[in-house]
Design a protein around this nucleic acid. Structure first.
Length: 476
RNA sequence: GGCGGGGUAGCCAAGUGGUAAGGCAGGGGACUGCAAAUCCCCUAUCACGGGUUCGAUUCCCGUCCCCGCCUCCA
């Protein structure tokens, strides 16, 4: 493992050094469960999933924590609109989030802590900060005294005095300083609240992550992930809360993913240009969608549009087609592990270099090119070629599915199940077609082929006879 | 205004001080009854202007343009 990764705090690529050799702890800021996940959330999910898979693939033992923010202004607003309890909203969207993640092929977190389940931990942290005079309570609200933390701004590269203060600072009348932020918000009529030493209320947004990350991963855990748009103020405040209270280092590495754009704009709920993640998975399929996510470096912006998704789908098909051909041509041959060594090395080098997914995907394509080159020989029964093709296919699955979660093997298995069902029907049609071709009635033969194609059955005429399979339905 | 990230072929996108991966699309050829799959071949003076250097797309300075954060946001 010699991963080098860009660390937002140090503003540079740095060698990844886990706190404990061989073990990695990752905390990811999860969703505020107030609406369906959109394609932007999917990027966070895939980037962190690939990071996690890659570390595990490299032999490390990964503990992955992603929280759920289940209490917040927007949840309350939505509940009020729908005239239901806020917990109904948070429960609904937590379930939807998890279901969508599952369909996206994202591994479930080892721990998925809820904000409302960690109020005691938050209270402890807040009390500690008050004790140290780094926070103060005013009429049931508790604010963090930003100017007492000298490291404030180190993550986002801001100097406190440069910060522009908008005219509409929330709670300006009660804050000592407009920069201060709420850790505990006093109960408002009609809002859910919990008891606390400072009166009934609910937690501020930032406190939950400080408290839950420390509780589940301990101080100085390895990697904190989130969207680039959370750097300030959310992550900055997480650091301030933890480090002001305990000293030390909150997280060793900060990894942020870039935004998804629609055209030239960020995809964002407030702009209202969001595309539902579950609909995107439905429309494009897991593999193509994930390949699209991996088509740009993880910090770069990535644009969502039909043409790019189509490109990704075509590229994905190239991988699947090779795997199908390789499996068939290998015909049970013992894989030649060395066949893919070079491609594994390139893949690993690319991933080690700041998770350079575009380059790693290129390595997969080069593997496919090498495999395609040997396919003809393998199909003719050349034993060495069969072993090579088998080895390349295995390596493609190992990297493409194991690290990138492309679901290549699964797609083939799904197709195979359909093929078994369709066998009698397709067999009969192909018999008719064989007869038509023998009679030189190519119009009839082509009609049959077209009919099968419209049902997703692809027919290829080979020197040794027709071959067919259920192809991925190409989205239009 | 402050901070940060970018401008590479028709599109997407890596990358390097010694004339630039990969995918998609396109063109030509092989194979095919025609296709499909596959193979071979073709398609970039790296935003602009200076500078450093034997040599810069890659380093430095400037200019133009784009995007993100600075308020909720993955």
């Amino acid at each position: 493992m010699s991963l080098v990764i860009y660390d937002t705090l140090r503003r540079d690529k740095v060698a990844f050094e886990p706190r404990e050799p061989g073990q990695v702890s990752i905390y990811v800021c999860g969703p505020t469960v107030q609406a369906e996940a959109h394609v932007g959330h999917g990027r966070l999910a895939v980037v962190t999933d690939v990071l996690r898979r890659y570390l595990a693939w490299s032999g490390l033992d990964v503990t992955f924590v992603q929280n759920v923010t289940d209490i917040d202004d927007k949840i309350i607003l939505r509940a009020r609109r729908e005239k239901v309890d806020p917990a109904v909203i948070s429960t609904r969207y937590t379930r939807m989030w998890n279901a969508t993640m599952d369909r996206l092929g994202v591994l479930a977190p080892d721990i998925q802590p809820l904000a409302t389940g960690h109020l005691l931990e938050m209270h402890g942290l807040i009390a500690e900060l008050i004790e140290q005079d780094k926070a103060y309570a005013v009429d049931g609200d508790v604010f963090f005294r930003v100017r007492t933390f000298e490291g404030y701004g180190k993550l986002s590269g801001r100097r406190i005095d440069d910060m522009q203060q908008g005219e509409d600072v929330v709670d300006a009348d009660r804050k000592e300083d407009p920069l201060d932020f709420a850790m505990w918000k006093s109960a408002k009529p009609g809002e859910p609240s919990w008891p606390s030493p400072w009166g009934d209320g609910r937690p501020g947004w930032h406190i939950e992550c400080s408290a839950m990350a420390a509780k589940h991963l301990g101080e100085g855990f390895d990697i904190h992930c989130g969207g680039l748009d959370l750097v300030f103020p959310h992550h900055e405040n997480e650091i301030a809360q933890h480090e002001a209270a305990h000293g030390g280092t909150f997280a060793r590495h900060w990894v942020h993913n870039g935004m998804v754009r629609m055209g030239e704009e960020k995809m964002s709920k407030s702009i209202g240009n969001v595309v539902s993640l579950s609909e995107a998975v439905e429309e494009w399929g897991v593999g193509p969608l994930r390949l699209w996510y991996l088509s740009a470096a993880h910090r770069s912006p990535l644009t969502f549009d039909t043409e790019r998704l189509r490109d990704a789908a075509a590229a994905h098909q190239r991988l699947t087609t090779f795997l199908r051909s390789a499996r068939r041509a290998a015909d049970g041959a013992v894989a030649d592990e060395s066949a893919a060594q070079q491609h594994r090395d390139v893949f690993r080098a690319a991933m080690d270099d700041d998770l350079n997914a575009p380059q790693a995907v290129a390595a997969l394509h080069e593997l496919v090119s090498a495999g395609n080159d040997r396919l003809a020989a393998a199909e003719k029964g050349d034993d060495a070629a069969r072993a090579e093709v088998a080895g390349l296919g295995d390596a493609l699955v190992d990297m493409g599915d194991g690290v990138f979660g492309l679901g290549l093997e699964e797609a083939l298995a799904d197709a195979a199940a359909l093929e078994r069902q369709l066998e009698p029907l397709v067999g009969q049609l192909l018999d008719q077609r064989r007869q038509a071709r023998a009679d030189k009635d190519f119009a009839a033969a082509d009609r049959i082929r077209d009919q099968l194609a419209s049902a997703g059955v692809v027919v290829e005429d080979r020197p040794d006879g027709p071959r067919w399979y259920v192809g991925a339905a190409a989205p239009e």
